[in-house]
Design a protein around this nucleic acid. Sequence first.
DNA 1: ATAATATACTAACGGGTGTTAGCAAATAAT
DNA 2: ATTATTTGCTAACACCCGTTAGTATATTAT
Lengths: 197, 197
Amino acid sequence: MARIKIDKNSSRKEVIVSKAAGLFRERGFKAASMRDLAESVGVEAASLYNHIKSKTELLHEICFGVANRFMHKMDEVESSSIPAIEKVEELIRFHIDEMINHYEEVYVSDREWKHLSDPYLSNFQTQRRMYRKRFAAIIEAGIRNKEIKNIDAPTAVLILLHAIGGIESWHRSTQKINASNLTDNMITILVGGLELK
Amino acid sequence: MARIKIDKNSSRKEVIVSKAAGLFRERGFKAASMRDLAESVGVEAASLYNHIKSKTELLHEICFGVANRFMHKMDEVESSSIPAIEKVEELIRFHIDEMINHYEEVYVSDREWKHLSDPYLSNFQTQRRMYRKRFAAIIEAGIRNKEIKNIDAPTAVLILLHAIGGIESWHRSTQKINASNLTDNMITILVGGLELK
DNA sequence: ATAATATACTAACGGGTGTTAGCAAATAAT
DNA sequence: ATTATTTGCTAACACCCGTTAGTATATTAT
């Protein structure tokens, strides 16, 4: 009888969520079936329901797990007393880091949150909107302090966040430059584009 | 008997493709059903098949329509004799313009091409890879001419293209700045990030 | 007016979906 | 060793999917 293998620090549910993230990333939430997931976990589809409530719950777990990490970082950065441009850089570095090290989850959270259902959906959207507002506020502070070019802050945020999403392509490319080189290049372009010199 | 309404310059098939783009953008290719599409066109699902071969064909039409426009523009820009940094700016402007004026199609082509099936899938991927290579080559030329910072060109391309994808968020936001302001801001940040001053 | 074509309809198909019920086996607790 | 709990299995459900066959009704061409 097949059994889901676990290591000491992760429950069976966590194993399933992790495998689900990989599958949702690869095929999209709708196209990835519970039977696919079961196979990738090494068990029959029905058995998954001993550990999870529904397919959607898997998406909740993934999306809010990611969202919480970003919110946490935002709290930390916001309350630190460094120049605005450095706050921006630290946030960008965190985004890049997350995208590199928790690729599947972050990607899914970014692209598949539409398939959440209420009340989770509106909850997620609100959190996302809040995050961007706070990010924009930092940029606006930087503009007032003449650290950052006089640009539309929400537009800047939107560019930054989506640009970082581009790491997806890096992940799949065959000739990758290494992660720290990638980070440096991104910082150069993005922070360089904002900075008022 | 319901009938698909057409204006002089668009066939019934084109009406369907256009509605499909809207639906695919909104819900994703897999989640949008032919019955949904039929309703949005104002007809029964089966009737669609008098005009199209399959659901996938709709995705072909959308993806390759977009891809061809970009390839065309690349041909034009490549063969013009202006500085590299200006070529980059022109391409960026074209991307922004396309994203603003053909939102649904471009968005779908960007995010849903995974659901194409071979031989279209590999065809599309190849075209995409080619496009990026040519874009990177322009940037590399700019680096050699000291117009552009010494950065990894493929990384720069990846950032640019994804950053422009961010216009998606602009489209959906309630408080939009106007399109030409948006373009100027994006150019400032992106071209400013590349330029060697 | 008649014939030919284009378009839409109803009904149904085979197949895939998420999920549940009921039972068996493995593990943990007593 | 016995009991309780966790985990997995088979079988099946109701539902939605893309698509086709066959037929009726508009539109266009003769």
